[in-house]
Simulated assay, not measured.
Amino acid sequence: MSVPLLAIVAWSGTGKTTLLQQVIPLLKARGIRSGLIKHTHHQMDIDTPGKDSYLLRKAGADQVIVASTQRWALMCETPDQTLNLAELVARMDSFALDLVLVEGFKDEPVPKIALWRRGVKGEFADLLDEYVVALASDENLTVDRPLLDINQPVKVADFIEKWLRKGQ
């Protein structure tokens, strides 16, 4: 059995990361072990220039694992490759997780909670597709799926816990 995925999707500036920062500890307190995959449109580098791992990766290593007794990280060079969510999920330890939360990847065919806030560019209807299982907003909108209060992370965590228990 593979680990369930649940994406949190929204227009930039809506508060995906902020909500996840609040929801993840609530899920953890309930015994739900979650992983996270975050999509970014920005150039990013988690390695530190000048450190040995950085120098060796820049020397041409296509994959580098940095490990300590507290954590480890795998960095993979992916020039000119399209991000593939299934491949990213496959790299996670599904035996250690109950759920993989995905921030972004709004066009992927996976279950999603869409977020929409008054005043943020874009319409909420443009976020809704057949994979959206709920909408979290600061407005009282009329939608054909559960409507959650984006400012109530406990309610969002409640929904996720029930969604997981139902078997999605």
Rank of each mutant, 00 (worst) to 15 (best):
S68Q: 07
I32L: 13
L83M: 04
C76F: 05
V132C: 15
S12M: 12
Y131V: 01
D45I: 04
K112S: 04
K51A: 12
A29E: 15
A59Y: 08
R30L: 03
T48N: 15
L127H: 06
W11P: 07
H39Y: 13
K16D: 15
T142N: 15
A96F: 01
E108Y: 06
A10W: 02
G31Y: 09
L56F: 14
L101E: 01
L6Q: 02
F105L: 02
K28D: 15
K121W: 07
V102R: 01
G122N: 11
N84P: 12
H39E: 14
D144N: 14
A7V: 00
S53G: 05
P25Q: 08
V23R: 13
H41E: 14
D98A: 00
T82K: 11
L74D: 09
D80M: 04
Y131E: 14
D98Q: 05
R30K: 06
S68E: 08
I24G: 12
E108N: 11
G50I: 05
A10I: 00
I113Q: 07
Q70N: 12
S94C: 01
Q63A: 01
G119F: 07
L74H: 02
G35Q: 03
P49E: 15
S53C: 08
L99Y: 09
R30Q: 10
R117S: 01
E139R: 07
H42L: 14
Q63N: 03
R30E: 08
L88S: 02
M44F: 15
G31T: 03
I65Q: 10
D107T: 05
C76G: 03
F124M: 12
I32M: 07
K28N: 15
F105C: 03
L26D: 12
L127Q: 07
L27I: 05
W72E: 03
K106Y: 07
L97W: 03
T40Q: 05
A61R: 10
R30F: 03
P49R: 12
L127P: 01
D98M: 02
H39G: 08
M75Q: 09
W116A: 12
R145S: 02
N84K: 08
G35N: 05
I65H: 08
I65R: 08
G122R: 07
L88C: 06
N140L: 11
S34H: 05
F95A: 06
L20M: 15
T17F: 05
L83A: 09
